[in-house]
């Protein structure tokens, strides 16, 4: 029977969340499959598994529960093994590698930071920084908004200025936070934020990290920052 795999941890892990509800409806029970010094957190794989909210949440919850008690290597959502024997053979084949990663991630958590601009505030800034843009904007306004061509001309320059600032602010965010972390991983590019960055943070230093985020907000009020964490170290397992 095929087996859904949530993550990998040490067999000495003190809080393996067995019996917790996993993916599927009704939720399939989480159990441990052991091989040597490693354990995989698995459950039966429902046949029609799709990336639905309920199942994504179950995946995340199992990893969060297990991660609260000790280092866990999270699997990407949706990994299904044909059977338990295949899980065991993967664990034994890569035992050294996984043990090394578990040691590296001990007492570490991931924080994901997403930054975007407050549009109005950033427009204020780009106009304040560039007298030419300001004059152009003022001329359009005095002309009742301006012609289509004038609007395009102004808009093109504003967009260029905003994009420049996006790139600059992405650096600002990363530089302000990388000192407070032990690892940095750019998030998947698809999501369209001016910065989407994951930081690996010592669990004990999490407050220092969050304080640094607050300082960025104070210093750069045109930035909207979203902090998500502590998370299982999805971005730092490889």
């Amino acid at each position: 029977m095929s087996v859904y795999v949530y993550g990998i941890t040490r067999s000495s892990h003190p809080g393996i969340p067995e019996k917790l509800g996993g993916v599927g409806d009704p939720p399939r029970e989480v159990r441990a499959v052991a091989s040597g010094k490693l354990v995989a957190l698995v459950s039966e794989a429902p046949e029609d598994l799709k990336p639905k909210r309920r199942d994504l949440l179950a995946h995340q919850t199992v990893l969060s529960e297990a991660g609260a008690a000790g280092a866990v290597l999270p699997m990407r959502f949706g990994g299904v093994s044909p059977d338990e024997a295949a899980v065991v053979s993967v664990l034994s084949e890569r035992e050294d590698h996984y043990l090394e990663r578990l040691e590296a991630l001990d007492e570490k958590v991931e924080y994901n930071i997403k930054a975007s601009h407050d549009e109005e505030a950033v427009l204020h800034q780009v106009l304040a920084d560039d007298p030419e843009l300001r004059a152009l904007s003022e001329a359009n306004r005095n002309a009742g908004g301006g012609t289509y061509e004038q609007k395009l001309a102004l808009g093109e320059r504003i967009v260029a200025a905003v994009k420049q600032r996006e790139a600059r602010d992405a650096v600002v965010v990363q530089e302000a936070l990388q000192d407070k972390s032990v690892g940095v991983s750019p998030g998947p590019e698809s999501s369209g934020w001016l910065a989407n960055i994951s930081f690996l943070v010592d669990r004990g230093a999490a407050h220092t990290f969050v304080d640094a985020v607050e300082r960025i907000k104070e210093l750069h009020p045109h930035l909207v920052l979203q902090v998500n964490g502590p998370l299982p170290p999805y971005s730092f397992v490889e």
């Binding site: 994901n112 998030g187 998947p188 999805y234 397992v237």
Partner: peptide, 9 residues
């Protein structure tokens, strides 16, 4: 996007 794009494969 982390749950879907990151983690061990």
């Amino acid at each position: 996007e982390l749950v879907l794009d990151r983690g061990i494969v």
